[in-house]
Amino acid sequence: MTSNAERYLPPMLADFLAFTLAGDPPAVAQARGELANGVCYTWLELGVLQLEPAAAGEAPTEASASVASVLLSAGVHGDETAPIELLSRLVADIAQGTLRLACRVLVVLGNPAAMRAAQRYVDDDLNRLFCGRHAQLAGGREKARAERLEALTAQFFAQAATLGAAARWHVDMHTAIRSSVFEQFALLPHTAAGPSRAMFDWLAFAHIAAVLLHTAKGTTYTQFTAETFGALACTLELGKVRPFGDNDLSRFTAADNAARALVAGALPPRDGAAMPRVFTVVDQITKHSDAFELLAMGADVPNFTPFAKGTMLARDGTYRYVVERDEERIVFPNPAVKPGLRAALLVIETTSETLAALGA
């Protein structure tokens, strides 16, 4: 009798990362199929793979109507490698049958060209081009990729509506350029519905230490899925940028387990896991010109570093940013962005009021 480990797998399922980096489409006969465990797979585009449990492909029933739709993405920034490696392993384990699949899953490795170049992006920051913002660009590789990812994502969630799926999730996994006071943290896009208790429970299960709440709509991938499709969406920041192969993936076991539990439909209760601390965006620093400077911090200042009232954090010609509150923490300081883009976020802690509103 052949074991799961001995079953032949198409190369794109055995090592989805290596297959994507190679850049070639699968042979026609291997672009879609059904595995021995009943999982159906479809290669949609370079770096984009759809997986479905057996129930999702059958005629709609009461059981299939409860199948969730989960989008798992990584590599939207090409040099953020740890979560790309985690997703590739997750695909292989689903294909081998060692990880049960109980929902529809769309796996997206966002920016293969930047992944191959070991760069954040090639022409433009892909995670600033969703919600239609790509239409403002004349050209570029990320513009075309954003357009295509929006279309494939819309197709995926439209099929979820046809199946009557009970839940839509999007977990977009990144790593930070800098170290952080909280090594693993999450960002939630701004929506009219506000934060979700289900999302906070999942983040606690994933041992995420802090959550950043946006207070204005952005143009990120998670903003697109949350606003357009009502998905429970979060951006996870897992450690720092490192080359492929240099990551200690054991540091992200809790987040990996949470993603696996989500696709297996086996989310347990929090079991006493601490809720994350919560921070809310109160301002941002925008780079207006090449004269822009970030002050009072070096390249090694971690995310969530606090600054006291009166501290000047940035200047750009006549523009100054001075801390106005007793304490503001800086997140994602990056003076190397293009003029017109965000160079940093400023946040304050709002843990008590946010968790109280969730009923926690």
Rank of each mutant, 00 (worst) to 15 (best):
L188M: 11
F307Y: 15
L71F: 02
A299E: 14
V331M: 06
P335Y: 02
Q96N: 09
T162V: 14
A299W: 13
A193S: 09
E147R: 15
R145C: 04
E147C: 15
G359A: 04
T222W: 00
N111M: 03
A22T: 14
G230A: 10
A165D: 13
T311L: 06
E183G: 05
V122I: 15
A357T: 12
V48T: 11
A167N: 00
V28L: 05
V263K: 02
V263P: 01
Y8N: 12
P243N: 09
G164C: 02
P302Q: 07
E58N: 08
T311S: 07
D290E: 13
G57N: 15
E227K: 00
D172R: 02
L267F: 03
L238H: 09
L262C: 11
F16I: 03
I348E: 14
L187N: 00
A102Q: 12
P339D: 06
H207Q: 08
D283Y: 06
V322D: 08
L99Q: 13
S66N: 07
R277E: 11
A102G: 15
T61P: 11
R342P: 01
R242V: 12
A36R: 13
P112N: 08
L72E: 03
T61M: 06
L341C: 13
R104Y: 02
T280A: 09
T220E: 02
A344W: 04
K143F: 12
D123C: 12
S88P: 10
A166F: 05
V107Y: 05
A166Q: 09
D246E: 15
M297A: 09
P243Y: 07
V211G: 01
A259I: 15
L313N: 07
D172P: 00
P25S: 04
T253F: 04
Q184R: 05
L17F: 04
G140L: 12
